[in-house]
Amino acid sequence: MRMVALIVRRELGAYFRSPLGFIILSTVLLLDGLLFNAYAMGSEERRSSSVLMLFFYFSSGTTLVASIVISMRLLAEERQTGSAALILSAPVSEAEIVIGKFLSAWIFLAIITVATLYMPLLIFVNGSVTVGQICAGYLGLLVLGAAAVAIGTLGSVLAPNQIVATLLSAGMIGLTVILWWIAHVTSPPLSTASAYADLYMKHFPPFMTGVLSTANVLYYVSVAYLFLQISIRVLEARRWH
């Protein structure tokens, strides 16, 4: 755990020491703000809970995109710059490396997510929503983000550079998102499996409406666990060449 904490501290510091971290932070806040103002608030009358739902709907999109960009550098950048040799030649296991880097990316994403809190709070100016709906929505964003960052971590482990890592992660996340549409054009049992495996349409909407389902939380945690396990095995396998 000590090594994991060390890696988290270093990686988190790297996000704030480099321009990339601030660019991601400001871009996500800008996009969320624009989308919230233009569509969630909009010009027509809406129920407060609908405004909140739309906020989480747009935020989930920016969360997915931000996850890809945040995670692209985790190992691909080290491979590009040659700094990977430091951590790979140290007495640290591949599991500690992967978990440390994943946690740093997820914590950074969580900081960005929490920074958007002012927007749902603005709803209280002219309306009212339950704290439960806000908490459920943010929990949904965090677990969705965890799953997406884990997928991005695998992309970064596989790729030789950050651009390929971005494309790979975007492809994998895109695939898991379109499973919902695949479910609609196939028959059971494939349609059932595809629908369940879908990263977004099956499991995220309940969070938007304030419904906290342990099954959905468990789903996202399982996806994160699966992709992190694969990342660890891939990193171990790289020592063969």
Partner: peptide
């Protein structure tokens, strides 16, 4: 790995870290 030190052909530096910060990290690692 705990018993050896390694310098590859490209020094494995983190560009955004200070020299002292980097060496502290390497020592703690």
């Amino acid at each position: 790995r705990a018993r050896l030190g390694y310098l590859p052909d490209t020094p494995p530096l983190y560009g955004e870290m200070s020299v002292q910060g980097y060496l502290l990290f390497a020592a703690q690692l």
